[in-house]
Write a protein that binds this DNA or RNA. Structure first.
Lengths: 226, 226
DNA sequence: CCCATTAAATGACTGATAGTCAGTAAATCA
DNA sequence: TGATTTACTGACTATCAGTCATTTAATGGG
């Protein structure tokens, strides 16, 4: 039955159209200020139809955010090909995350709500599972690199690669969040260069995790300025 | 005029009563799910009266959160008295933050919204200034300790104490946020001890900032387990 | 003590918005 | 061609932040 398949395709396409409309509004206004009526208008559909495709505003928000995750995953994959050394790869991942932050700021911002407990409760289980899948892929990529580093004697043998990944992520994420706020308190009043701070921290943490062998190798990779 | 003073006192008291009622509801439900009607009922006042004392729901939320800041500041102050050494103080500050997180979890959670851009736009300038004052006090405390450490040759001379403070804060904060989510993904599926991870990171970062002298002193302070 | 004035508090009302559902239109099928 | 299924609609409901005309209470002068 070709008709069923065509209908399936059309449904999927409609789903994408809705995500695209939602994206426009969520990017412009953020979650609380965006309204489903507005999204419906951009999508040229009635509000009721949105609810045929997504259970809630929050679910739709996650659907948009997932596009960001996919972009991030591809960027990470591309930044860390197998033929590169462990240190090159882990540094490239850090850079790729920052590049994602700069280039896809709107997606980056959406993740804020993902860390919110109240938000989690608003979202359907299916949608959360979908996200978890995506996150897991990114996660495995990073942990895999650190694991390689341990095997190769570049990182401390007693380092837990999952612990290490969390620490590196937590650090970069928190600093980018601050950068994004673009609060004059930091940049003007305190005269702090947050990007430099983030890089410094990344370096500090990485070095702290390395063996002597790793540190030697690391020195050859660092740019002139520390 | 004793009457004017009494009225002033009563107004201040009412203000506190409102904060206390709001606190109960915000703790129970979080910002989005809490309603002003509910707060008014707990305060045994009409909703209109709440708006005589606070410009918006968000302003009231901040007023509650500020109670948390004050507690945190007192805890930090107490944890880091002048007679202690720099390293003892900076470690005690880290511990105090974690203690605040555990003991005043509800206040800790409130700060999530403080990092949200949309939230900032909802809040009155006066209220933000009030918060900034409180934050500045905590900030100066921490930066002061690190500055002392640099002067005493315990931290690297080229370390920017404000940068260092941000890094330490970002790290602890991000990990506690994760702990608070209490996501089975980390604790059960990945079998990660987030508290250990946080302590490990704090240690890693601190050590990375120290001179040889500092590291020697640090070793005498560490508990048996690394 | 009484009444005018000021201050404090009220709660019905407005406007906005998430989500629903009975009804309509269009496509498909027999 | 008419019956049935599927996709879509938009008026409607419930909820809630914030307002404001009105009421209530306190104060102070005469």
């Amino acid at each position: 039955m070709g008709i069923l398949e065509r209908k399936e395709r059309e449904k999927e396409q409609r789903r994408e159209e809705i995500i695209t409309a939602a994206q426009k509004i969520f990017f412009e206004k953020g979650l609380p200020a965006a309204t489903m009526d507005e999204i419906a208008e951009v999508a040229e559909l009635s509000k009721g139809t949105l609810y045929l495709y997504y259970k809630s505003k929050e679910d739709l928000y996650l659907a948009v955010a997932m596009r960001g995750s996919e972009i991030m995953y591809r960027m990470f994959e591309q930044a860390a090909p197998k033929h590169k050394s462990v240190l090159e790869r882990i540094m490239a991942i850090g850079d790729a995350y920052f590049q994602f932050f700069q280039q896809y700021r709107d997606y980056f911002r959406m993740y804020e709500y993902f860390e919110n407990q109240q938000f989690h409760k608003q979202v359907s289980q299916e949608m959360l599972m979908c996200c978890a899948n995506n996150d897991q892929k990114i996660w495995n990529l990073v942990v895999g690199i650190i694991q390689d580093g341990i095997t190769q004697g570049i990182f401390d043998a007693d380092l837990d690669p999952r612990q290490a990944a969390i620490i590196l992520w937590a650090n970069g994420n928190a600093l980018m969040r601050l950068m994004d706020r673009d609060d004059p308190y930091w940049t003007e009043h305190m005269k702090i260069d947050l990007e430099k701070t983030m890089r410094k921290a990344y370096q500090l943490i990485l070095e702290g995790m390395m063996t002597r062998k790793g540190k030697l190798q690391y020195k050859t990779l660092l740019p002139k300025e520390a």
